[in-house]
Amino acid sequence: MKRLCVVLALLSSGAVASDKRSGVEYVSPETRALQADDFANPGMLWVGGGEALWNEAVGQTKKSCASCHQDAKQTMKGVAARYPVFDEVRKRPIDLQGRINQCRVRRQKAAAFAFESEALLSLSAYIAHQSRGMPVTPPRDERLWSYIENGKELYFRRIGQIDINCASCHDARAGQRLSGNLIPEAHPTGYPIYRLEWQSAGSLQRRMRGCMTGVRAEPYAYGSPEMINLELYLMNRAAGLPIETPAVRP
């Protein structure tokens, strides 16, 4: 019962489902149009690149992702909508990028992709794209609860020289203008995104690190437990919103 209360508290602390608005609603009409047109959305270049990698036989096993998972359009549908999940091997949560690298190392016997490498972003984009339009549905797995709770603590922890937490901007001031930028609600539904400022695709972790550096804090390392827990909390907070990968952001 106590456990249940924790989860209920976690979920009710975010905005009510119907109130949630994706980041796409906070961007200019031009950027929205770019995201909506698959032939103009630069993020689709990564999706296309990911499809090519999916079918490439590599590593000591000379197996492609497709050798085991066949057609991603079927087998990967809905996967990104429920990640991060609890990993039986590591006995802690793993995100989609982590899972891709796990398959790379354990099943293909190839070297892990670096964070933010074109290959990892492309495969992530290709897999997440198969869930486009599907609602975020975090697994009901009690092994995840303490990690979600930690993610929430991090979200509400003041950090950096500016000494401010994520919620001060993304919960309390969404829709207001910080410098020239509209503050969105920080829903992680479009990742990897194509960000105009980066002139490239990038991961949710890169985006969060940007906010951390913005408040003059030492960002958490790529792949660190803190990052995964933040991802977990944000996905739980975004439950019900549709996946948009590849989203376009300013």
Partner: peptide
Amino acid sequence: MAAPRIMVN
């Protein structure tokens, strides 16, 4: 990545 990434419609 092997092929250049191009999309035409």
